[in-house]
Design a protein around this nucleic acid. Structure first.
Length: 852
DNA sequence: ATAGGGTTAG
């Protein structure tokens, strides 16, 4: 135990250095007055008490000696007592000794050794002003005094001053020893003074510290903290001797540079070498395991801590709680939290952010109020968690409360807080508010801050504003990283500037920035959303060539591309990837798969996927129900509804839209009315526009025009796309194309911004084979800046289903498809099958029904 | 000489 404590050199060299300075005139007087036969304190005994921190006992021993003898205390005694106070950082006791030295110690305080010892004492106790004064009074400061001053400045975070001290020490021709060098290196790494640190490295080797484990360990630490890991490794590997602290420095360096995997490997290696880890090693392991969500490794770290009998202090506790939160094991984190006796604000914050990351916003806020009850004050970390909770839970008022709290408590200049506030307003579409907060931070904007603002613009499709900021940040010497580029690309995609997005994608690579999974995935999503499904799928192949594997989000983007292309072939390919790589069929992926299959024409495959999902959420049910609706399968949709009720899943508005729409498509009149009744009386839900729309369609299919108008006027619901579609369907059934055109003009006047109206109109024209009119509507949409592609029909050619944008005359197969559609329409009419063309959704062409 | 928490992109 004791050997772990650094032994100050003063103590080691005590006998000679102690007697030396007081030899001249006055020391001889002592010798004459107090001959050696008189009783003395047993010095080793006193020294051992002081070393063990048994200050009280040490004082008792001295007091006893004084009462037994009228002799004044020898300077060694004061020295030992002071040393005890240094170990214990016992300021009041040390001050008493200082007072005694001044009062009784005759001229001891002029003794250089005693002066240095006192200086060290004040320095170790953090008394900057006193220490500086004493330092000034020393006529020729020695290595120990310099070391004390430099160490004190380091401890107080006065890194510049520490380095100034180091330089002054050299100028005073006092040679730094192996105690000063680590402190100087520490100051260098805090200031990121790489050149200075390298200089010290050279100096240390020249001075013969090339095998001193203290100096070399701190060099490993310095290089690691300055992100020069190569040099850290070099020092580490060339060291003649390494101890656990060297290993820890290596662990910390890797963790500092985000090399979490390397941390796990190093820890493993260290154990193989038989090095017993310390709490530092374990904290580091836990932090990296948390970042990697490496469950087994983190748990092993916990086990090692328990086996070593480590006390659960706040540092170890926080590492553990952080690990369990990041691993998603919030209950384990709670359990540790409850076991901790002396929780500090870090521990509280960890639980709060753990809940936020887990989406348990309610629990996070409850924990915050408990914090206040236990007299903790929110700090900037608590507030960032609360602000991101507000963004996640779509609670702008909570965000505003948090923002005003920050302003009132002067936390709003904190960079992390400011960034999260910018993000908050960005998510809510309040770009101007976001910009105002961003502009308040003028001089110290970091990369994250710039990226957050660029992302706020991107999120809202303000691509040119984002680009301006991207240039401005570089003018202010902040170098963009992959996140900056990704946000820029996203902004273009959100604004439908596909070419610009692709140009930026090329540009980032020209600038030596490698696209990551998020770059690829944003592009895949963006291309699919903008109708470039084919290009999105090509990008997927490029991404694989670049050695990047798709993750769930990329998969969903790809499925979206397949859906928009109505490409069953590609959809099955992606499904194959999921199966081959044994990706979990999460509700997120399953929803997209089901949607893809049902929209690509295969409701059976959609239902197969549904059966395989182990965790069936409301969304999973809804997507299959609307798939059944699209395919006119009311019976199956209603069975699914019964099934979800049995599983105690509460239906929402989307569920009923799907159910009603399924009934409308299938012409299931009685079932439709029943479902509406269930919606209102059992589930207490008020029907919305889209529900009435479905109902109108259902009535229309039964020729009950009067009832449609009756229902509409009874609800005072404004005409919307769904209702419009039904009315237009009615017109078409009655061959009343004139009225339908009247209606169209009227509705476009009423709701010039409603995309759905245009889509419905374009669909109507497309289905009637009136491509010119459909094209006109599409042009109107383009002028209005609307993105949806209307007038889609599906055509099965060979093994593949294509989506056909009716009015898109640029489609390479335009002529063929138009001809096929007309042919189909005619065929169906011949067999008295007009209903399949009248469906609300897109015309669905069953496999093989198409004549070429 | 080494050690814990918060902010940005799909």
């Amino acid at each position: 135990m004791a050997s772990l404590l650094p032994h100050p050199p003063i103590l080691r060299s005590l006998p000679s250095s102690f007697t030396a300075p007081i030899k001249p005139v006055k020391s001889s007087t002592f010798a004459i007055n107090h001959p050696p036969k008189k009783p003395q304190i047993h010095l080793p005994q006193l020294s051992s008490l002081c070393e063990k921190g048994l200050l009280r006992e040490a004082f008792a021993l001295v007091t006893q000696f004084q009462s037994e003898s009228d002799l004044p205390l020898a300077p060694e005694i004061y020295g030992e007592l002071l040393q005890g106070c240094i170990y214990d950082r016992a300021l009041p006791q040390g001050q008493q000794i200082h007072a005694r030295i001044l009062k009784f110690g005759s001229l001891f305080h002029r003794n250089e050794y005693m002066k240095t010892k006192l200086l060290i004492f004040y320095a170790k106790c953090g008394c900057l002003v006193v220490a500086e004064e004493m330092f000034r009074q020393q006529c020729r400061p020695n290595v120990f005094s310099w070391a004390a001053m430099i160490g004190l400045r380091c401890q107080l975070g006065l890194d510049e001053e520490a380095l100034v001290g180091f330089v002054e020490m050299l100028e005073a021709a006092c040679l730094p020893d192996n105690f000063v060098i680590p402190n100087a290196l520490k100051a260098c790494s805090s200031l990121q003074c790489i050149g200075f640190g390298r200089g010290i490295h050279g100096y240390a080797l020249k001075m013969g510290f090339g095998s001193c484990v203290y100096v070399l360990s701190s060099l490993v630490d310095f290089y690691g903290k300055c992100t020069i890991l190569g040099d850290a490794w070099k020092v580490f590997e060339e060291m003649p001797e390494r101890n656990v602290i060297t290993w820890n420095a290596m662990l910390v360096g890797n963790a500092h540079n985000g090399l979490n995997l390397e941390v796990l490997e190093l820890f493993h290696h260290m154990r193989i070498e038989g090095i017993q880890p310390t709490r530092v090693s374990i904290s580091c392991l836990l932090s990296s395991s948390a970042n990697l969500e490496a469950l087994a490794e983190g748990k092993q770290g916990h086990a090692v801590a328990i086996l070593m009998g480590l006390e659960l202090d706040n540092i170890l506790g926080s590492s553990l709680i952080n690990f369990y939160c990041k691993a998603g094991l919030i209950e384990d984190a709670e359990c540790l939290f409850n076991r901790m006796a002396d929780r500090d604000v870090v521990i509280w914050n960890l639980l709060v952010s753990g809940y936020v990351q887990d989406g348990q916003i309610g629990h996070a806020l409850t924990t915050c109020s408990q914090m206040i009850q236990e007299n903790f004050k929110f700090d900037s970390v608590t507030l960032t968690s609360i602000i991101s909770a507000a963004a996640i839970s779509n609670d702008l008022s909570l965000g505003k409360v948090a923002h005003s709290y920050c302003i009132r408590n002067n936390l709003d200049s904190d960079l992390a807080i400011a960034s999260s506030i910018v993000d908050l307003y960005g998510t809510f579409g309040r770009v101007d508010n976001a910009r105002r907060v961003f502009d308040l931070i003028t001089d110290s904007r970091d990369l994250v801050m710039w990226n957050t603002m660029i992302s706020a613009y991107a999120h809202n499709g303000l691509s040119s504003e984002g680009l301006n900021l991207f240039y401005q940040m570089q003018l202010e010497s902040v170098h963009p990283n992959v996140i900056s580029w990704n946000s820029l690309i996203l902004g273009f995609l959100r604004n439908s500037q596909v070419d610009e997005a692709l140009a930026m994608f090329a540009e980032m690579q020209n600038n030596g920035v490698h696209p990551n999974i998020i770059t690829w995935t944003s592009l895949i999503h963006g291309l699919a959303e903008n109708g470039y499904g084919r290009e999105a799928i090509n990008l997927y192949f490029q991404m694989q060539t670049a050695g990047i594997r798709p993750n769930p989000t990329s998969i969903v983007g790809l499925l979206l591309a397949c859906t928009n292309l109505s490409s069953l072939h590609n959809g099955r390919m992606i499904h194959g990837y999921i199966t081959r790589h044994r990706l979990v069929l999460s509700p997120y992926i399953a929803t997209s798969l089901i949607d893809m299959y049902s929209k690509c024409g295969s409701i059976d495959l959609a239902a197969n996927v549904f059966r395989m999902v182990s965790h069936k959420t409301l969304t999973v049910y809804n997507v299959l129900i609307s798939g059944y609706a699209l395919h006119g399968k009311a019976k199956e949709a209603l069975t699914l509804y019964d099934d979800m009720c049995e599983r105690r899943i509460t239906p929402d508005g989307f569920t009923f839209t799907g159910l009603l729409s399924a009934c409308a498509h299938a012409g299931a009149f009685a079932e439709g009315i029943r479902i509406l009744t269930v919606m209102v009386s059992v589930h207490d839900q008020t029907p919305q526009k889209e529900h009435y729309g479905c109902l109108a369609a259902l009535l229309a299919r039964h020729g009950r025009i009067k009832q449609v108008f009756g229902a509409l006027s009874a609800t005072s619901i404004a005409l919307d796309a769904y209702t419009l579609t039904s009315l237009l369907t009615l017109c078409k059934e009655n061959r009343d194309i004139e009225f339908s055109e009247d209606l169209s003009g009227h509705i476009l006047d009423l709701e010039p911004d409603n995309v759905s109206n245009y889509v419905a109109l374009a669909n109507l024209y497309a289905r009637s084979g009136r491509w010119k009119e459909a094209s006109h509507v599409r042009m109107l949409m383009k002028q209005g800046g609307m993105k949806t592609n209307p007038g889609c029909s599906w055509i099965q050619t060979g093994g593949e289903t294509h989506v056909f944008t009716a009015a898109d005359q640029s489609h390479p197969q335009f002529a063929d498809i138009a001809r096929a559609l007309l042919c189909l329409d005619k065929q169906m009419k011949n067999i008295g099958c007009s209903s399949s063309i009248d469906k609300l959704g897109q015309t669905h062409v069953n496999q093989g029904s198409l004549c070429h």
